[in-house]
């Protein structure tokens, strides 16, 4: 079997990169190699994983500086003798080795608006057309790997913004609620304010790293910014609302 040199971050904030030489097979992914390392050389190496198929979003890390899912990074991209640096996600506080404390994301999940549906139809069912839900279905593909949150420079390089900025993953959640065909409440004009949409400078790193292939910037953030502009910066619509003709949606 060919061998790669892994440089893996070990320990907490005061830890260091340790070098290991590990065997691998071409058909494997980085996570397999990390598991081999764990069962043979570093039993207590902390790493998260669940599905090994890019479905659960547990195994996020930075492989040679690129935020990626370890279970979806194939060894075929490397050749024997390569050096692979594996580091924990930078944006979140480090717990140990490759595991970070992502609690901030769960706090934001509670913060953003939640879905409140319209009344059901007379027969107790809801009717929605496929073309109306397709936009939302794209957002529902999110596996909560938080790679987009990790790569977003607004918080990656400026942690102080964490208070005012919920991050791309939660912009998606806001978009999914705001654009839901059955949504009844959160379309109020101020529903989008206060979450830091205006901190995003649409540089698209979130879209670049998203393993679910969600066009976060084009389909969620910019449309939300535009909806916010409808409410906040468009004098015609403002006038319309004042004299109650038409609605912003």
């Amino acid at each position: 079997m060919p061998i790669v040199e892994l440089k893996v971050w070990r320990g907490g904030d005061d830890g260091e990169y340790q070098t290991f030489h590990v065997e691998y097979d071409e058909g494997e992914v980085i996570l397999d190699v990390v598991h081999r390392l764990q069962s043979t050389q570093a039993q207590d190496l902390a790493v998260r994983w669940n599905c090994k198929a890019g479905k659960c979003g547990s195994c996020s890390a930075e492989v040679n500086g690129k935020p990626s899912l370890m279970c979806m990074t194939r060894m075929i991209n490397f050749t024997s003798g390569d050096v692979i640096a594996i580091s924990p996600m930078k944006t979140f506080p480090l717990i140990k080795d490759l595991v970070t404390d992502v609690a901030w994301n769960y706090e934001n999940a509670r913060k953003v608006p939640h879905f409140k549906p319209k009344e059901r139809d007379a027969d107790g069912k809801h009717r929605m057309m496929q073309i109306d839900i397709e936009r939302g279905q794209e957002f529902h593909q999110c596996i909560e790997c938080y790679l987009c949150q990790n790569v977003c420079h607004v918080i990656r390089d400026h942690p102080e913004n964490k208070e005012n900025f919920v991050g791309p993953r939660f912009f998606i959640q806001m978009a999914q609620v705001n654009m839901h065909p059955l949504e009844s409440v959160s379309q109020k004009p101020d529903a989008l304010e206060g979450y830091g949409l205006d901190y995003c400078n649409i540089t698209k790193c979130c879209t670049d790293v998203c393993p679910a292939g969600i066009k976060i910037t084009d389909n969620a953030i910019i449309p939300l910014k535009e909806r916010l502009i409808d409410d906040k910066f468009d004098p015609l619509r403002w006038l319309g609302r004042k004299i109650k003709i038409g609605n912003s949606k």
């Binding site: 690129k66 930078k90 990656r156 400026h158 913004n161 995003c200 400078n201 790193c205 670049d208």
Partner: peptide, 18 residues
């Protein structure tokens, strides 16, 4: 801001387009 993804931004503070 940022020069590329996962590359550190040199500025010390940031408020985007807010």
């Amino acid at each position: 801001s940022p020069p590329a993804c996962a590359v550190r931004e040199p500025a010390n503070s940031y408020a985007g387009e807010s």
